[in-house]
Design a binder for these strands. Sequence first.
DNA 1: ATTTAACAATACTGGTCGGTATAGTCAACC
DNA 2: GGTTGACTATACCGACCAGTATTGTTAAAT
Lengths: 203, 203
Amino acid sequence: MVGKQVSRTERVEETRRRLLDSANALFYEGGIRATGVEALAEEAGVTKMTLYSHFSSKDDLVVAYLERRDRRWRESLERRLDGHDDPKEKLLSVFDAYREWLVSGSMRGCAYVNCAAEFPDREHPAREVVRRHKAGLRRRLFELATEAGCAGPEGLAENLFLLLEGSYVTGALEGDGAVIWRARAVAAELVAASVADGGRCGA
Amino acid sequence: MVGKQVSRTERVEETRRRLLDSANALFYEGGIRATGVEALAEEAGVTKMTLYSHFSSKDDLVVAYLERRDRRWRESLERRLDGHDDPKEKLLSVFDAYREWLVSGSMRGCAYVNCAAEFPDREHPAREVVRRHKAGLRRRLFELATEAGCAGPEGLAENLFLLLEGSYVTGALEGDGAVIWRARAVAAELVAASVADGGRCGA
DNA sequence: ATTTAACAATACTGGTCGGTATAGTCAACC
DNA sequence: GGTTGACTATACCGACCAGTATTGTTAAAT
C-alpha cells in the first residue's frame, strides 16, 4: 500500500510527457490553431502555468509536438522494416506502415502537411520540422531503394515519395486508408521496372 | 467625363465579386482561420456590414470562395485541354495545368487540402465542397483516360490522381513546382503501359 | 421629386486567445 | 527539518474574433 517514491526529475518528465501526449492528441485531431493552450493543459491534467514552465510558448510546444511525432513515426517505421528480410519487400512495406499509421489514428492525415496548411509562413519554426520530416522520409526511401538494388534509386525514391504523399492525403480526405494499397501496387510496378530495365521508369 | 451609368444589380455583383476576390487572396495565402472578416472587408474596400449583407456568415463566404475557386480551376483546366488534340496528351496535360496553377499563385498548395487541415470536422459545409472538387477531378481523369483508349481507365485515373495529389502537395511544401514534371513523367509511363499491355499497371 | 436600397462609419457585444502575475500547497531533497 | 521547486488556483492583461445595432449618405429606380 506504500506509494512508490517518485523523484523530482521523474515527476517533471512525466508532466512533460503528458503535455506532449495532449499536444499530440489535440493538435493532430483538432488542428493547431484551433486548439488553445488552456484546453491542452486541461487535457494533460495540469494548469496553464505548468505548461508555460515546460514550454516557453505555444509555438515551442508545437515544435516539440512535431519533433516527437516524427521520432515516433521513424521508430514505428523501423520496427516494421525489421520484420522483413527481402529489401524489395522492405521498400514496399513503407506503404503498409503509412497505411497503418493513418488508420490507427484519427485519420486526420499528415500532421506536417496540415501544419503547413495552418502556418503559411515558411520561416515559422514548425515549418523547419516539416522539412526535416519529409527529407528524412525521402532519405530512407533512397537508402531502401539502393539496398534493393534498384537502378536510379534517387528517382525511384522520389516517385515512391510522391505516391505516398498522394495516397496519404487522399486517404485522410476520404477517411479510408485503402487507397494506400493502390499506391503500393503502383509502387511495386515501379520497383519491378527499376530492377528490370535499369531504371528507365521515371528516373 | 461623364461617369458611366451603373445599375444597382451591377453594383451589387461588383461588390460581391470584390469580396470573393479578397477571400480568394487572403483565405488562400494566409489560411482561412487566420483571416478575419474585418481584414477581408478592408481588402475588398467595403465595411464588415456590407460583407454580412452579401454572406450570412464567414462559413458561408468560405463555401462561396471554395466553390468559385473550383469553378475557375475547371475552366482553366478545360482551356488547357482544348489546346491539345491527342487524347493521351490531353490526359498528361492535366499535370501541366496543375503545375502552372501552383506556380502562378502563391504556392500555398491545394486550397481543399488546406481547408481539410483547417476544418477537421468532416460535416463542415466547406468539406462538402472539398469532396466535390476531388470527385470532379477524378471524374475528369477517368473521362480522359477513357477517351485515350486506356485499358482499365478507372484504375489508371486513380493512379494519376494520386500522383497529382502527391506532387501538388510536395511542390507546395517546397515552393517548387518542378516535382509535378516528375509526376507527369511517371504518369506517362503508366499511361503507356495501360495502352500497351491491357491495363496491367496497377489496375 | 420622392422612394428605396446598397452602402459607409462607428460603436458595441460576448467570447476566446496567448501569455503573465501572485499567492499558496506539498513532497522530494539535502 | 528546513529548503527548494514543481505544481495548483485564480485572476488578470491586451488583443483579436465573429457578428450585430444604429445612424447616416448617396445614387439608382420609380
